[in-house]
Design a protein around this nucleic acid. Structure first.
Length: 944
RNA sequence: GCCGGGAUGGCGGAAUUGGUAUACGCGCUAGUCUUAGGAACUAGUGGGGCAACCCUUGGGAGUUCGAGUCUCCCUCCCGGCACCA
């Protein structure tokens, strides 16, 4: 009887699978395809740590299951190898980045192979391979030819340490994403990709893909679509007539616009003056700064003349660079208006609906608009406030309130209501609180739906003098005095926010940014704000307009280790694309004098100094010309790599041309789209968005068969070091999978990584916990010596296991799948025997998680073909069904007994059984059963 | 500040989505076997109580026959965004 020796087993089967090409996908297969994808790694010099394989193992489990379910599975891998760390390391050590990359990929490949992941290694790609990047350059040329790749002089984010320009997405809190150095602004001519042209489609097509909700949301927020309007304001003060166009998402608030705020650049253009105001990107310092331009604008809705300010919180490159300042309904405008003493005018008021069912507005009754007041009344001695409760509706908690009668002003109404409802005669008006708000309710006495527009008045009683209250009011109302901090709890929800926010100061003085009904807006008063948006745009002659936050993608880097941009700069012809036949534009070899490829402080690419490489003939006029010396960002190669995996070897290696690409479309059609793509959340607004953009572009050129590259996107959690920190070489806390594979075996590592916690959750590594999965595998291994021939032991358990494990894998609930295996094993352990049939099914279920040990046992049992190409077990619902089932008996919701019932037993019988149950009788003695609730085959609850 | 996600034994985590809270694993305790064990196996293991029972899913209220799960308020943790009009 051999014991489990992972070292022997794992090597042996890895070689076997390699030789038998077990995991190779076919471009010709008649089976249905399944394309599962992980983000190909960046082969850093640090080697693999145990966090890297987590997504590979997860998708491996899914891929292996799909393979066993009869799919032609494509599960490829490659290397995203261009990039800064390699280049920096190469410069530091005086090596060629090609040599460094080779060494790193060799290490990564060896490490990943030792884990027994079912990658199709025959399709391995490397973005730094000239065969690969000639296609990257070719795709770039298509962008260029369509005018979507263009050059632009602009301020860029410059990292002084890496000496490289960064895309907006690569700047985190004003610092370089890679090295943490504070970025500077530098003016430079840059290559841009016009991703904004695809903003709407990138946004909208998210509807059609199955990404995790937070991933969709992340992309949507990043694209930042906002629907609004452009509205023109006439301005005077320039000496000639002029207009300023503003962008707003809230045209419904235009009557509340009490100033215009414009960006410094816009102000300069308009007036020729520099006001010394700068838009600060610093996140810490957000104080509103501004200056009066001396201009005035005419509010096109109200006709009011309003001042124009130049401010530091409106940027020139979003919208129109000008906004209308509506302090009552925008926090920033509010802050600015406070500082500059500008008027704050409420034009939208919230509508509350009564929470009392009898007061819910109903159909078929008249609608009535009313003006009303609510009075906050302070006690004459104590710090207490007058509250009311309706006798017949005890749930309505309110304060003194009532409608304004003809000829009355607000204060008169307030005083009258205080006297009528509470009898007090000495109320002194102090001030009005807040603005308008609406309450919409069914008026029971008057049988109509009332829309009451409330204002809030604060009164103080001078003394306790009272007149008698009418019988009618007395029957209706109870009055209370409540302390300040009790008022909020006491009030019904409808009144709560309105009274509290304005008066008791729990929430600071603030704007109301929600929707509601318009007030102070002339003929639009009482109109619903959504409807008012449209009508007001028309009224002021504005135009509906959609704006995006997304900016064009800064696509050039001034470094050596990237794909050269395949364009030639000719004095005569301008920017000329490198002809297809001349692709790839290879990076100059680093020999002899060309060894110096350090980045420069000037922001010029190091390639610019390599004259032999730079100086070329113009492909068009044959005159003297120079190559573009910028290279592409490392996001370029990863924007289409999932297509490269599908290509035929020959087509991939052949020359880059339209014809050769078109020959590949058949292969793309075979495998695309990717069925399931798992990757890191950090790429939501980077790689994932970029590659969707490239794919859509290729789709428009009819070069790929689908408009979206990925059908389904999920993400995995990080693995942290045992102390909860991020794993990194500099922290010295890296766990190398090599050590784990050596000591425990790849299968144990795989099982542990899937078992340690939910797949999508960040989790700390625990060396201690590894032993659990290892013990489990040993017990699985020893089970092969416990086979009892021709006996069907544990059939029931294995059927249940099939069902649960199949479901869990599809839903990435790997941890509970493994716990199901353990439960199964614990059950079987009690019997001490297992039937071969059941054991084989169990091994098949386990094989995606632990491919080596299961293959070993599978062959030990006499099978002649790989377990990984066997047919995934199916389960029989009938075998899973129990004859008898345990139900719980509760008394008042507390578990008091358990009992067995037949599966089909009727409700009545079960109830009777429960009431006669010996454990239950003592609780029933002398009590009446009020109610019995039966949840079929689960529990019965007796309410006393 | 805004938007997401979360808080369950000593630890990692389960919970059929409103129906027996703490599955599974680690650790711990006791025992068996061992020259020995930081191995393996067996049993036990949320807290309190002699017990019947009681308490327990970050805190507080609520809805419900029944709440880890739903609603409201609060505290803390982790991610993303950041003057986007």
């Amino acid at each position: 009887m051999k014991s489990y020796d992972h070292k022997k087993i794992e090597k042996k089967w890895q070689t076997f699978w390699d030789k038998k090409k077990t995991y190779q996908a076919s471009n010709k297969s008649k089976k249905p395809k399944y394309y599962s994808l992980i983000e190909f790694p960046y082969p850093s010099g640090d080697g693999l740590h145990v966090g890297h394989p987590r997504p590979y193992i997860g998708m491996d489990v899914i891929s292996r299951k799909k393979r066993m379910q009869g799919f032609n599975v494509l599960y490829p891998i490659g290397w995203d190898a261009f990039g800064l760390p390699t280049e920096n390391y190469a410069i530091k050590t005086g090596k060629d980045p090609r040599v460094v990359t080779k060494a790193n990929t060799d290490t990564f490949r060896r490490q990943i192979k030792s884990l027994g992941i079912s990658f199709d290694w025959s399709r391995e790609i490397n973005t730094t391979d000239t065969k690969y990047y000639k296609w990257t350059q070719w795709i770039f040329l298509q962008f260029f030819k369509k005018g979507l790749a263009y050059k632009k002089r602009m301020m860029i984010n410059w990292c002084p340490k890496d000496k490289i320009g960064l895309a907006n997405e690569e700047v985190i809190n004003g610092a370089c994403e890679r090295c943490g150095t504070t970025v500077e602004k530098k003016e430079k001519e840059q290559w841009m990709l016009a991703i904004t042209k695809y903003a709407e489609r990138l946004y909208k097509d998210l509807d059609d893909v199955d990404y995790l909700p937070q991933i969709k949301l992340g992309q949507r927020n990043w694209i930042g679509k906002s629907e609004g309007a452009e509205i023109e304001f006439e301005i005077s003060g320039l000496g000639h007539p002029n207009r300023i166009k503003v962008f707003t998402t809230r045209p419904d608030t235009i009557f509340g616009a009490t100033f215009l705020a414009i960006a410094p650049e816009v102000a300069k253009k308009l007036t020729g003056k520099d006001f010394g105001i700068k838009v600060d990107t610093d996140r810490e310092n957000k104080e509103k700064i501004g200056a009066d331009t001396g201009l005035t604008a005419k509010n096109p809705a109200s006709g009011e003349m309003i001042p124009v300010f130049v401010v530091n919180y409106v940027s020139a490159d979003y919208g129109t660079g000008a906004i209308m300042g509506v302090p009552a309904h925008d926090d920033r405008d509010f802050e600015f208006a406070k500082k500059f003493n500008l008027p704050i005018k409420q034009v939208v008021a919230a509508v509350s609906k009564s929470t009392v069912p009898q007061e819910t507005p109903r159909d078929g009754v008249p609608h009535v608009d009313r003006d009303a007041v609510m009075c906050i009344v302070k006690h004459w001695e104590k710090d207490e406030y007058l509250c009311l409760q309706w006798r017949n509706h005890p749930s309505i908690h309110s304060m003194v309130s009532g409608g304004i009668e003809k000829g009355e002003d607000l204060i008169e109404t307030g005083k009258r209501e205080i006297q009528e409802e509470a009898g007090y005669t000495s109320a002194k008006f102090v001030r009005q609180i807040g603005g308008f708000s609406f309450i919409y309710f069914y008026h029971q006495m008057k049988n109509n739906n009332t829309l009451a527009r409330f204002r809030y008045l604060y009164f103080e009683l001078q003394n306790g003098e009272q007149v008698p209250i009418s019988k009618e009011e007395n029957d209706k109302l109870i009055t209370f005095w409540k302390k300040k901090d009790e008022v909020y709890e006491f009030l019904s929800i409808v009144e709560r926010d309105l009274v509290w926010n304005g008066f008791l100061g729990k929430i600071k003085e603030a704007t109301y940014t929600g929707g509601g009904l318009l007030v102070n807006s002339g003929k639009f008063d009482r109109m619903e704000s959504e409807k008012a948006k449209k009508e007001i745009i028309n009224f002021v002659g504005g135009k509906e307009k959609v704006t995006f936050k997304l900016r064009d993608w800064i696509f050039s880097r001034q470094r050596y280790w990237g794909e050269p941009i395949p364009v030639i700069n000719c004095g005569e012809c301008g920017l000329v694309p490198v002809p297809e036949k001349d692709l790839p534009v290879e990076l100059p070899k680093l020999t002899g004098k060309m060894k110096n490829y350090q980045p420069t402080d000037t922001g010029e690419s190091p390639l610019a100094h390599i004259e032999k490489w730079v100086n070329v003939k113009c492909p068009s006029c044959k005159g003297k010309a120079k190559r573009e010396t910028d290279t592409m960002p490392n996001w370029a190669g990863s924007s289409w790599y999932y297509l490269a995996y599908c290509m035929s070897k020959k087509g991939f290696s052949g020359s880059a041309s339209f014809e050769n690409w078109k020959l590949q479309i058949e292969n793309f059609r075979h495998f695309m789209p990717v069925d399931w793509y798992n990757g890191g959340n950090e790429h939501t607004t980077l790689h994932l968005l970029y590659s969707r953009f490239w794919h859509k572009f290729l789709f428009d050129l009819k070069l790929v068969p689908t408009s979206e590259p990925y059908m389904k996107r999920t993400s995995h959690g990080l693995i942290l070091a045992e102390n909860g920190e991020k794993m990194s070489k500099s922290r010295g806390n890296v766990i190398n999978p090599d050590d784990i594979v050596k000591r425990y075996g790849a299968d144990t590592l795989r099982l542990y990584e899937m078992f340690m916690g939910p797949f999508d959750q960040t989790i700390a590594w625990s060396e201690e916990a590894l032993i659990g999965p290892r013990r489990f595998l040993e017990r699985v291994y020893n089970l092969q010596y416990k086979i009892k021939k021709n006996k069907k032991y544990s059939e029931f358990e294995v059927e249940k296991t099939i069902k649960k494990v199949s479901f869990d894998i599809e839903n990435m609930k790997f941890n509970t799948a493994i716990s199901t295996f353990m439960i199964f094993l614990n059950e079987v352990g009690k019997l001490d025997f297992i039937s071969r049939d059941v054991y084989e099914k169990f091994l098949q279920l386990l094989s995606p998680f632990a491919p080596h040990i299961t293959e070993e046992i599978w062959f030990n049992l006499g099978n002649k073909n790989s377990i990984h190409l066997s047919i995934w077990p199916s389960f029989d619902e009938n075998l899973i069904k129990d004859e008898e089932i345990k139900v719980v008996v509760q008394i008042n919701g507390k578990v008091r007994a358990e009992m067995m019932i037949g599966v089909e037993e009727k409700e009545e019988e079960v109830k009777n059984k429960a009431c006669k149950n010996s454990g239950i009788l003592k609780y029933l003695a002398g009590k009446d059963i009020k109610k019995v609730i039966y949840v079929k085959n689960r529990l019965i609850n007796i309410v006393l």
